[in-house]
């Protein structure tokens, strides 16, 4: 699999505040990669660093196998992005906005080509309307058309469904799936809704308070046979180090000096045995249920997440 985004040891500090703390992840060609976390988790800061809007404090970002810092211009030619609410030039029409950004990407597209792009996002019939007359959903769709106008290989969408009604959310979701399945685009999409990511993404990453919690295949992470367990022992630090060398090293996290482990339910007795064999006194192995509950616990919300409207 060809890596499109490779992030290693990425950090961003704003004065004393650490917004992104040593984050590593990889997005492969053709992935719809879900970037999940509650508001303030560090998703947008990470995305802004991927787009050179914010300079990292430390760490490395590679896109298309090249250093973003060294090959910025070359890389950005292949990237389209919608960052939060895409407020375009309100005093211009949808077509003029699209034309302007196409020209900025070095393209001189005919009106027919541009109308095709607008048709893709369902705005062809409003091409001459000024953006100031658009609803939030229409602006969001136009933002996506702008991101796609230069036919980029990688599309980065930061909370694209924020503020949309159920129909708007469904439209954006269908568009993302269409771009992935029919056009083979690699897409990184952030959200604070697990249900949203679950439907559109094949791989995902969860961030919490600037740190990566977990990364992997959506099907595998949301597998009901798997669970997150909290492990408490007489010596959590040593246990953590020991587990890092074990079979379960991929799914281990140290969160506020608590060990969280993503593990198959069948494996819990094996985990218990493993710790005992290593002379560790176990105080507790507590299942935190599914990843969804785990995520909801992290975000401290008990709100039931509605599925997408069709």
């Amino acid at each position: 699999m060809e890596p499109i985004i490779e992030v290693s040891q990425l950090c961003k500090n704003f004065n004393q505040f650490t917004a992104v703390d040593n984050v590593n992840f990889t997005v492969y060609k053709g992935d719809v990669f879900g970037f999940l976390g509650e508001n303030g988790a560090g998703k947008s800061t990470t995305i802004r660093m991927l787009l050179t809007l914010i300079e990292p404090t430390s760490g490395e970002i590679k896109l298309f196998g090249k250093s973003l810092q060294k090959h910025r211009k070359e890389i950005l030619h292949q990237v389209g992005a919608v960052i939060e609410r895409p407020d375009l030039y309100k005093y211009l029409s949808a077509l003029d906005n699209l034309k302007l950004f196409a020209k900025m990407s070095g393209l001189s597209l005919s009106n027919n080509n541009l109308l095709e792009q607008l048709d893709l996002v369902g705005l062809a019939d409003r091409s001459e309307s000024k953006v100031k007359t658009f609803s939030q959903g229409m602006k969001q769709r136009l933002g996506i058309a702008v991101a796609l106008v230069h036919n980029p290989e990688l599309i980065i969408l930061d909370e694209p469904t924020n503020g949309l009604d159920p129909q708007g959310i469904a439209d954006i979701r269908n568009l993302i799936l269409k771009l992935s399945h029919e056009r083979g685009k690699t897409i990184l999409v952030s959200s604070h809704l697990l249900s949203e990511i679950e439907i559109i993404a094949n791989r995902m990453l969860i961030m919490h308070k600037g740190k990566k919690i977990i990364e992997g295949e959506v099907n595998s992470l949301l597998d009901p046979s798997k669970t997150i367990v909290k492990v408490e022992t007489s010596d959590n630090n040593n246990t953590f180090e020991l587990l890092k060398t074990s079979l379960w090293s991929d799914g281990i996290k140290n969160i506020d000096n608590q060990i969280h482990l993503n593990i198959s339910k069948k494996d819990i007795p094996n985990l218990n045995r493993f710790l005992v064999e290593h002379h560790i006194d176990i105080y507790m192995i507590q299942p935190l249920h599914s990843l969804e509950n785990y995520f909801l616990n992290l975000t401290k919300t008990s709100v039931h997440v509605e599925p997408f409207a069709n």
Binding site: L53, R72, L76, H77, A81, E84, P86, Y89, S105, V146
Partner: peptide, 14 residues
């Protein structure tokens, strides 16, 4: 203010 600066800066210009 319009929110277009972030779009401009992500274009392939320094």
């Amino acid at each position: 203010n319009m929110g277009t600066l972030r779009l401009l800066v992500t274009k392939p210009y320094s």
